[in-house]
Amino acid sequence: MKIEILGTGCSKCKSLYENTKKAVEESGKDAEIIKVEEIPKIMAYGVMSTPALVIDGQVKFSGKVASIGEIMGLLP
C-alpha cells in the first residue's frame, strides 16, 4: 500500500505525517509513506486545503490532522 501525505511543509503536515507513521506501525500493515510537497502533484489530486491524506491514489481527507485511531480506520 502506498500512503501519500500532501502538504507544503507546514507544521500540520508534519503532525499528520507523524500520526500516519504511528498508525501504520500500530496496525502492523505494510505501507510506504511518502511526503508530497510539490504544488503540481498536490493540485493533480484536486486538493485545496492541506494537509491531505492519499491512500493508493485515493484522497481520504483534506485540511485536517487526523488522529492515529482515525487513520488506522482508513487503512485497507
Partner: peptide, 17 residues
C-alpha cells in the same frame, strides 16, 4: 469556508483553474 494561510497556494490555484 475554513481557511489557513498555509493552504493559500493550493486554494488560489484550485479557484482560478
Amino acid at each position: 469556508t475554513p481557511f489557513c494561510s498555509c493552504s493559500a497556494v493550493p486554494l488560489f490555484i484550485g479557484f482560478v483553474e
